[in-house]
Nucleic acid binder design. Structure first.
Lengths: 228, 228
DNA sequence: TTAATAATATACGTGCATGTATGTATCCTG
DNA sequence: CAGGATACATACATGCACGTATATTATTAA
């Protein structure tokens, strides 16, 4: 909708023609529609993969959850693997943005350190996030031909998290005893694993347990000794 | 083959009759055969589930890996779920035995503490173990109707690990800041998670990283400060 | 408004893993 | 050694998710 502006030129061809009162939108409605359904399909795939796992997930479910049939799916993606990889890219991009945002939010180094600590605790509350990242990892391990590709996509995220940890550790004058990337990966790994245990048996691993264990691990790695 | 002999008393019926020189085997050869194939099938299932995951695993593969066809499978198990649960029980029993064994091996409390520490490091080297326990957990999370059942089977193992940790911590005079069960579960969780990360990208999480991170976590929880 | 093109739905064919039914060999009883 | 039972294999039926081919609806251009 948007009565907005300027000749459509769907792609390269800027078809000049007598301008009139109502100028066509820059982006054709068709393209907008396509992108919208792609997003809906990706969102639906995210939910479905997290709920059922990659193997058990049915394209039918993904499409219908997005409000379409399988026809729409195949118009946008080649296969289940295809949308899986597309999801991974979206995922990595989002999480990198999230990390960057975290760095800029707090003012003082001490506050940033606390924010990072809290970040890992919060990470352990996002069920979808844990299950999805598990699917990515399991897929990589079990599909040698896709392993390299998945690893390559994941690495920027690892590096990004590692940078964050290194920077914050450096700010508070602490030397990491291992590579910052491993440290960040380790923290994320524990966070994921604890939520998983919590989901399996929340009577054995409680929310407080998670908070405590993650905090202890964080302090052990970043050499800080905050309250508690 | 086996020129052996005589009365099998397959189950309860101790058919008394004139005893002869060679006393018969208590277990009939048939039962022995059955148990042998069950074991082979379970071993094959263990490999297959770890390699492909529960969903992708095919009964055909399990059977053939064990040296049989699907006929033998269905003679011993009702379905894929059935062997999955059977595997879980075997698994829990074995790991509990393993933990008990660990406790009795070392002499002094200090040695036992070190052995426990090393135990978690070694845990992070068993690929099949990690992938299988992941499958169990994911299955529990994703199948509400089976969740309670799986949780019930897992709990003795958790309790057992918790006891071990508590006992050893107590021996060296340390008070655990959280429940011993959570502590043990947390340690196991980190161990699993780190191996998983290592399998995904062994350039980012190296063997030394795993050893260091696990050690740091262990010391943070059990309050010890051993060398490196 | 109409013709052309893109987006999505419907219909159809196919493969594959499951489960069952039946056949065959091995083992036990007497 | 014969008849019956048990362990396993082979053959068959079914269902289900996938992928493709075709039809229908929405959008754009003239």
């Amino acid at each position: 909708m948007g009565s907005a502006v300027a000749m459509s030129s769907t792609r390269l061809l800027a078809t000049q023609h007598g301008i009139r009162g109502r100028t066509p939108p820059v982006i054709s409605r068709q393209r907008a529609r396509t992108e919208a359904t792609r997003k809906k399909l990706l969102a639906a795939a995210e939910k479905t993969f997290a709920r059922d796992g990659f193997e058990a997930a049915r394209l039918e479910d993904i499409a219908s959850l997005a409000g379409y049939t399988r026809g729409a799916f195949y118009a946008n993606f080649k296969s289940k693997e295809d949308i899986f990889f597309a999801l991974l890219e979206q995922w990595v991009a989002r999480r990198i943005a999230e990390v960057a945002e975290l760095l800029g939010r707090e003012e003082t180094p001490a506050k940033r350190l606390r924010a990072l600590r809290e970040h890992y605790v919060q990470l352990a509350k996002d069920r979808r996030l844990v299950l999805l990242s598990l699917e990515f990892k399991l897929f990589a391990i079990r599909h040698p031909e896709a392993h390299a590709r998945l690893r390559t996509r994941q690495r920027p995220l690892r590096a990004c998290g590692g940078d964050l940890v290194r920077r914050i550790a450096h700010e508070v004058g602490h030397d990491l005893p291992i590579s910052s990337t491993s440290a960040a990966t380790g923290l994320g790994a524990l966070s994921n694993a604890l939520l998983l245990e919590h989901l399996v048996d929340n009577a054995i691993v409680t929310d407080q347990d998670i908070r405590f264990l993650l905090g202890a691990f964080f302090d052990a790695i970043l050499g800080t000794h905050t309250n508690r």
